[in-house]
Design a protein around this nucleic acid. Structure first.
Length: 641
RNA sequence: GCUGGCGUAGCUCAACUGGUAGAGCAGCUGAUUUGUAAUCAGCAGGUUAGGGGUUCAAGUCCCUUCGCCAGCUCCA
């Protein structure tokens, strides 16, 4: 048979040769690293004998599919260990996921995380034994008989769904363990030397809260102990950067408890961070052609009926009775901006009209989903609504994407753009006419194409009221977060009958775009804290400089320096406490103050200071002006767009 | 919301199978006058999340409410 390689070179092999043998023919190293193959587009086991001509790709841990196969194989390995140690364990599902795998079980008398050691020991034993994974194909009936025999009720339920698929059913066997599985798998258990069991949690069977709760065990596996160690230390680092921990250590905010779950109380230091972010946001928006507005926190329920929120978002809203009317706390800012738009008859000459507000919204979120600043019940959306004509769409989208990227650049976030489009199979689900959708979808794509931005189109991901562009931001640990979002809206202009008078004297339906760049100010600050590990850039640091006189005799000079810095708009504090310099420096370092000015006898007499930079250390003695210059540069606010 | 875990001083954590709470840090007071990540001493701090129950006796066992954490589900 003729085998073609990815570089389009080709070679003849005898029929029945396996992927592993072909890999070995290329190099020993490749054979060692190979996990599975892609053959004529199908992912197959390395050990499967090949019979036809075709294109082969040998996949290793560096390939996404190879990684998945190893992790999925490891979930089988773990399941076999669990089933051996806990007889009577019924298997749920055990897929690979980003960064690892899990398996859901119904385990009788499971002892939680303390069982990990035993499970891991059994897994290691099997790794050492290097048991081969054997694929076996069988008819639907045979498979039912097999799993029925084993009492695997969940597997039988999964099988039911394959009943009419008509394909033959495949199972994978290693040792005594059998699992319903499409594959592919790595050749044997010996491939999973570098695994780690991570955590356990409850999970509903098939993700449905009406079903029974199974025990889920999470783990991960890598191709080398180095990579495993790196991943584990990344998890460790993420834990250290947890914004909830840093937020309370740095005195930025407090959430929940007596103050109510999911409600954020900004402490003075955290308020400075917020104010700086918001002020910069406002300036940047004014400069970019937005008009700032402000709307109330509550509005009559009729407004929410008109907007449609009452129908589809009621369960997440808070209601209150005032006089004889019913009101709702705003879960979104758009209806408020609509009222402002509708305040007078609008001319095409006023468009595009860009309204922006840092608007606090309240949404009922289920108690279990609340998480620090990332998921709360009251938060500030940096909302903007653009009203424009059809001709202006492309340009407005480009402007707003650029504007969003400007904000990510300020903080050195990476990014990835997603364009969410309608599902053409289900046009009834969406507001607006399909031909309008097409037009706008093309306009969004054109806007991105013209800018030369890479993006991924996701069909069927659009919300019902319009297509959208989501920008996911990538932080210092390589994690992606929900970032700026730009959403087209066919629904609201229609519901509120939003129009403008064109140059033809006729009324036209206005086009509307919602956009948020920080998303939620609260969540964004959470992201910033984790991204910077609490070492916020100078302009955001609540306290920018600590002034440290060494002895009481330098207190007067220290006060002079303090007032000089304060007059320059630098946030500084004087720490003249009766403590050693070492002690006060340590405290300034742990509270992550970017700069320290130490003033001793030598400096005091000569108008100098000794500058120390957070995490870097002592910069030595210098003229006050020189230190101020360094401090001002380190605390400079970002350039406006 | 669901499942599980947890809740002891401002923070981090102790208190064996039930025998009426203890330390470090922070705080306060004093001594010390300090040269780049913790000077010393003293003092104070708790209805053990709230409520109810079992017991001679509850931080510890049971019930319940609240909150927090992990995961699931959800996320216009």
């Amino acid at each position: 048979m003729r085998i073609v390689f990815p570089d389009s070179s080709a070679k003849e092999y005898e029929a029945g040769t396996t992927g592993l043998e072909i890999a070995g023919d290329i190099s020993q190293g490749l054979a060692r690293n190979a996990l599975i193959i892609r053959f004529n587009g199908d992912l197959l086991d390395l050990t499967k004998p090949l019979h036809d001509d075709g294109g082969i790709e040998i996949l290793t841990f560096r390939d996404e599919e190879g990684k998945k196969a190893l992790r999925h194989s490891c979930s089988h390995l773990m399941a076999s260990a669990v089933q051996k140690l806990y007889p009577g364990t019924r298997l749920g599902i055990g897929p690979s996921i980003e960064n690892g795998f899990y398996y859901d079980f119904n385990i009788p008398e499971f002892s939680g995380i303390s069982a990990f050691e035993r499970i891991a020991a059994e897994m290691k034993r099997q790794v050492k034994e290097n048991i081969p994974f054997i694929r076996k194909e069988m008819s639907f009936k045979e498979a039912v008989a097999l799993f029925c025999d084993k009492g695997e009720k969940y597997k039988l339920e999964l099988l039911e769904e394959l009943r009419d698929a008509g394909e033959s059913i495949s199972v994978y066997i290693h040792g005594d363990f059998v699992d319903l599985c499409r594959g592919p798998h790595v050749p044997s258990t010996g491939y999973m030397k570098h695994f780690e069991l991570l955590s356990t949690a409850g999970a509903y069977w098939r993700g449905d809260e009406k079903n029974e709760m199974l025990t889920r065990i999470y783990g991960t596996v890598f191709d080398s102990s180095k990579n495993l160690r790196e991943h584990l230390s990344m998890l460790d680092e993420a834990k250290k950067r947890d914004h909830r921990k840093l937020g309370s250590e740095l005195g930025l905010f407090t959430i929940g408890g007596e103050g109510g779950p999911g409600l954020v109380y900004w402490l003075p230091a955290g308020t400075i961070v917020r104010e700086e972010l918001e002020n910069h946001w406002k300036k940047a928006h004014v400069k970019s052609g937005y008009q700032l507005v402000s709307t109330p926190h509550i509005a009559p329920v009729e407004l929410w009926k008109t907007s449609g929120h009452y129908d589809y978002y009621r369960d997440n809203m808070y209601f209150l009775d005032i006089d004889k009317g019913e009101y709702a706390l705003k879960p979104m800012n758009c209806p408020g901006h609509i009222i402002i738009y509708k305040n007078s008859k609008r001319s095409y000459r006023e468009l595009p009209m860009r309204l922006a507000e840092l608007g606090m919204v309240y949404r009922y979120e289920k108690s279990g989903v609340l998480h620090g600043l990332m998921r709360v019940r009251g938060f500030t959306v940096d909302d903007g609504h653009i009203f424009c004509t059809e001709d202006q769409i492309v340009e407005e989208i480009q402007k707003v994407v650029n504007f969003a990227l400007y904000f990510l650049k300020i903080f050195n976030f990476g990014y990835r753009i997603e364009l969410s489009l309608m599902d053409p199979a289900d046009p009834g689900h969406y507001a607006g006419k399909p031909e309008e959708w097409k037009k706008v979808e093309l306009a969004l794509a054109k806007a991105l194409d013209d800018m030369g931005e890479d993006y991924r189109s996701v069909v069927g991901e659009a919300v019902f009221y319009g297509p959208k562009i989501d920008i996911k931001m990538k932080d210092a640990l390589g994690r992606f977060w929900q970032g700026p979002t730009i959403q087209f809206d066919f629904n609201i202009p229609q519901r509120f009958d939003l129009t403008y008078v064109g140059n033809d004297g006729q009324e036209h339906r206005v086009f509307m775009v919602h956009r948020a760049l920080y998303g939620s100010v609260e969540r964004f600050i959470g992201n910033l804290i984790e991204h910077y590990a609490g070492n916020l850039p100078g302009w955001l640091a609540p306290n920018q400089v600590v002034i440290l006189p060494i002895m009481e005799s330098q207190l007067e000079r220290a006060e002079e320096v303090e007032s000089i810095l304060t007059n320059l708009g630098i946030r500084c504090t004087l720490d003249g406490r009766n403590e050693t310099v070492g002690y006060r420096i340590r405290e300034a370092e742990t509270s992550k103050v970017p700069f320290m000015l130490v003033i001793g006898e030598r400096e005091s007499a000569s108008g100098r200071v000794s500058l120390r930079v957070h995490t870097e250390g002592d910069r030595g003695s210098m003229k006050l002006d020189e230190a101020i210059e360094t401090i001002m540069a380190g605390c400079r606010r970002p350039e406006l767009p």
